[in-house]
Design a protein around this nucleic acid. Structure first.
Length: 195
DNA sequence: TTATGGATCTTCT
DNA sequence: GAAGATCCATAAA
């Protein structure tokens, strides 16, 4: 498979634009067992302004500092003391914006993913933000990774999803800013966490 | 040093 | 469909 990486320009666009553009693209992870390739099917945008749900909405801390870097790196954090969530940092340095990858569809290396996260149905392998982190073996060690240059964790180009097949709704699992329409997913895709 | 809450998942009915 | 598990990071004192 021919994997084409994105340039920095891709990540410096408007965060909502990047959120939509990431749909249908590949998220790749090199593991000890081989290369895993997945397709992004669901994202959420977290903005710096007028968005109380964003970790960067309050102030810069040791935990969210990666969100303030220039776009093109990863931001991984622990939630509920037990699960990881994977974000792609976007925008200029100090903007404090990112895109949460909520769900992916296994493309290649499905068996490897199942070795990290045993499930009966492939459909349940990566249809959630923490599920995909487990399946791709993404942990705190992957925080602050360079997604443009790294060969271990990176994004690659693929199909563009037609605008008519992108559904925009409100975000999930948050208590603040829950009414903002910043969640995007691919229409009729089985691997979306919730419709 | 202590208290509290959270961008979730799994298990049970 | 509904509720409990679980523990780190942050903020307050």
């Amino acid at each position: 498979m021919n994997l084409i990486r994105f340039g920095k320009d891709f990540f410096l666009q408007d965060t909502k634009t990047v959120s939509k553009n990431l749909l249908g693209k590949f998220l790749c992870k090199k593991t000890d067992l081989g290369l895993v390739i997945t397709k992004i099917v669901e994202t959420e945008a977290y903005l710096s302004k007028n968005d109380p749900a964003c970790h960067a909405s309050t102030k810069k801390t040791k935990r969210n500092e990666k969100m303030f870097e220039e776009g093109g790196i990863s931001y991984v954090y622990l939630i509920y003391g037990a699960y990881y969530c994977f974000n792609v940092v976007t925008g200029q340095k100090d903007s404090g914006e990112a895109v949460l990858i909520r769900a992916v569809e296994p493309i290649s290396g499905t068996d490897i993913m199942k070795s990290f996260r045993p499930v009966e149905k492939t459909k349940n392998l990566s249809n959630g933000p923490s599920k995909l982190c487990l399946a791709l073996n993404i942990t705190k060690k992957e925080n602050g990774f360079d997604l443009i240059k790294s060969d271990e964790l990176f994004l690659a180009d693929n199909e563009n999803i037609p605008h008519s097949d992108i559904i925009t709704t409100t975000r999930i699992g948050i208590t603040k800013g829950a009414d903002l329409p910043l969640r995007f997913y691919i229409k009729n895709n089985e691997f979306v966490s919730k419709k």
